[in-house]
Nucleic acid binder design. Sequence first.
DNA 1: ACCGGGGTTTACGTATACGTAAAGGTAACG
DNA 2: CGTTACCTTTACGTATACGTAAACCCCGGT
Lengths: 132, 132
Amino acid sequence: MSQTLTIRQMCDTFGVTPRTLRFYESKELLFPQREGQKRLFTRSDQARLKLILRGKRFGFSLEEVRKLLELYQMNDGQQTQLSCTLEVARGHLAEMQAQRAELDEAIAELKEQMSWAETTLADMARNETDAA
Amino acid sequence: MSQTLTIRQMCDTFGVTPRTLRFYESKELLFPQREGQKRLFTRSDQARLKLILRGKRFGFSLEEVRKLLELYQMNDGQQTQLSCTLEVARGHLAEMQAQRAELDEAIAELKEQMSWAETTLADMARNETDAA
DNA sequence: ACCGGGGTTTACGTATACGTAAAGGTAACG
DNA sequence: CGTTACCTTTACGTATACGTAAACCCCGGT
């Protein structure tokens, strides 16, 4: 079935380089199967990559992301150290919620600065036309 | 006036190392004054450091943060390239809002995974007691 | 048989964001 | 005057997250 993607298809789909995918595999973030030499990225790999890229956008390190992936991995089998992993997840959840609150604050501040800048700009334009 | 802080006071206040502060100065993110050899970090430096650290938490690079700081800097004087800087700010605002939306989604997903994990854990505990 | 277009491994290179050690100035304390 | 405490500059080292080049295999087409 064509649920599995080649390395290039993965790259085109997710906007990453082959190097990145091989690097993630070496770091045990992805586990593509092999057809001979060639990597075949399963649905599971695709889902994981999505989470990896999202994690990165939030400033998580690959190592942190790897731990998060363990939680999602649980659905597909093992239940080892489930409660331990839950603890990690709780931490991440708290962190993300805090981050959200801070982000809201930052957005508000930035908006304020921008509106100041905009009115200032308008004032400058007004003075320009006054001078003319 | 003791509005200005020594390097160590800054470190204690913000939880960074002297190295970090000197590094930020070398990258033109901070502009401490000098009393002889020693750096004195003004109120302005303290405000900037706050923004730097927050930017970092959101995954912005120092170079990106530096551009954002230019906008805030505007309040204290120059109006050079104000509209250009506004464009940068607009970009950051959009990025942050998108990040917020994604963060909400991620939080929801993580919560779902966690509740699944919790019920699974409960089931396991039930089976344990059944066996006993 | 050859070649291009994919894929592979191995390995050195690079940017960012500092850590850390070396070597030294200065001011106060005993 | 020596030591301690704190600061300084200079400069090499390090972790992360890949980029990039070299050298190779393999498969389909002409």
